[in-house]
Design a protein around this nucleic acid. Structure first.
Length: 140
DNA sequence: GCCAACGTTGGC
DNA sequence: GCCAACGTTGGC
């Protein structure tokens, strides 16, 4: 299984909105960036991701799961853009802030730190484990 | 609200 | 195919 990080501005699409959405999942639409799209194409059903609030909050607030493979993004007619469906799995009990991530040497290579503009990012397995630990989640 | 970093566009 | 101009993102 692979791990990812999904970024969203909370005033556009927040963690609360994600949780309130159907448990069948919701398409992660609106991505208009090739790198982010390619990451979504690489996703498999059951892959896990962090849900990160950008601009406001600046913290990892939840865990999501990929529940549909990449398909056309219905919010555009342009066939280039695709997205996966994700559903909320659980809260991160103690949200992990960008500040904490930057302060942690183990996380120095994270895409979030080095390419903060990429909205859908891969997360390494050890990074995943470390952030889960920091967030008060065990055995994820 | 500012600005640096990055991606995309379009003229040549 | 290069590169300048422009738009957007996101941390501060």
């Amino acid at each position: 299984m692979a791990y990812w990080l999904f970024k969203s501005e909370p005033f556009k699409w927040s963690w609360d909105m994600q949780k309130a959405a159907s448990t069948k999942g919701q398409q992660w639409d609106g991505v208009r960036n090739y790198q982010a799209r390619n990451n979504m194409r690489a996703m498999q059903i059951g892959d896990r991701g962090f849900f990160y609030h950008s601009n406001e909050g600046l913290e990892v607030v939840g865990i999501v799961e990929v529940c549909a493979l990449a398909h056309h993004d219905t919010t555009t007619d342009d066939p280039r853009w695709e997205c996966v469906d994700i559903r909320a799995v659980k809260d991160v009990p103690k949200p992990v802030t960008l500040e904490e991530i930057k302060a942690n040497e183990k996380l120095a290579k994270m895409v979030l730190v080095n390419n903060s503009r990429l909205s859908v990012q891969p997360v390494a397995e050890d990074e995943w484990a470390e952030i889960c630990r920091m967030g008060g989640l065990k055995g994820e």
